[in-house]
Design a protein around this nucleic acid. Structure first.
Lengths: 109, 109
DNA sequence: TATAATGCTACTTATTTAGTAGCAAACTAT
DNA sequence: ATAGTTTGCTACTAAATAAGTAGCATTATA
């Protein structure tokens, strides 16, 4: 499984390519969840696993590698944690919390 | 495959539940992409398929059903298109475009 | 120095996604 | 009116991804 990363197919016309890579990466099971959990606090491998409903270690391991390669997380003394890039992603994804609440309200109607 | 929808497990303490459902739904291959394409313009089944790199009709069909159930898209004369809820999701996801560009720049370094 | 927790890897099974074919209904051109 | 084309699917099989379980080497803790 290769890590989706933004490419530079044609310099100056990469519009839309980067976000496609983002969709691809974030559209893999657990990735958004992992970033979300790490945005609350750094976590160990097993800690992350617990937070993520006991997700299988094999998948967690591959996600850690992908997110590391994408420079969104890194390994520290305190466990896995977000890079600055990872944190900035969570900031842009933050409005999703509010939207989700609205979504829930609309569906309930 | 069931559609992830926000639930009301305990009234008043659903914080975080709705966004988990959002992560689950958006974290399925093609869903963000489909919404993205429909945000540009309404599309027919086959039009959508083409825009999405020729994704398989079986998966597209199941995605259409899920997104419809989640009230993010609906079927119209002009083809599939976003509901108001779907549009508002794309608005909240819009900053991701800018972030992706920054991500690309950082990875290139 | 025994015990337990941690960060994995290996392996198998289940689920999801891809790929291909094709068909019924609607639309279009003759 | 009717032959050809496009559209919106469904059915089926194959490939890829995710889940589940076991366990082991290393490090921390008692």
């Amino acid at each position: 499984m290769t890590t989706p990363l933004p490419k530079n197919p044609v310099r100056g016309s990469q519009t839309g390519i980067a976000i496609m890579a983002a969709f691809d990466l974030l559209g893999r099971k657990w990735n958004m969840r992992i970033l979300w959990e790490l945005n609350q606090t750094p976590l160990s491998f097993r800690g992350l696993q617990e937070k993520c409903d006991g997700m299988s270690p094999s998948v967690l391991n591959s996600r850690i590698k992908q997110l590391t390669e994408a420079k969104l997380i890194f390994t520290s003394q305190d466990g896995y944690q977000l890079t600055e890039l990872g944190k900035s992603l969570m900031v842009t994804l933050d409005p999703l919390r509010v939207w989700s609440a609205e979504w829930e309200a609309q569906l309930a109607k």
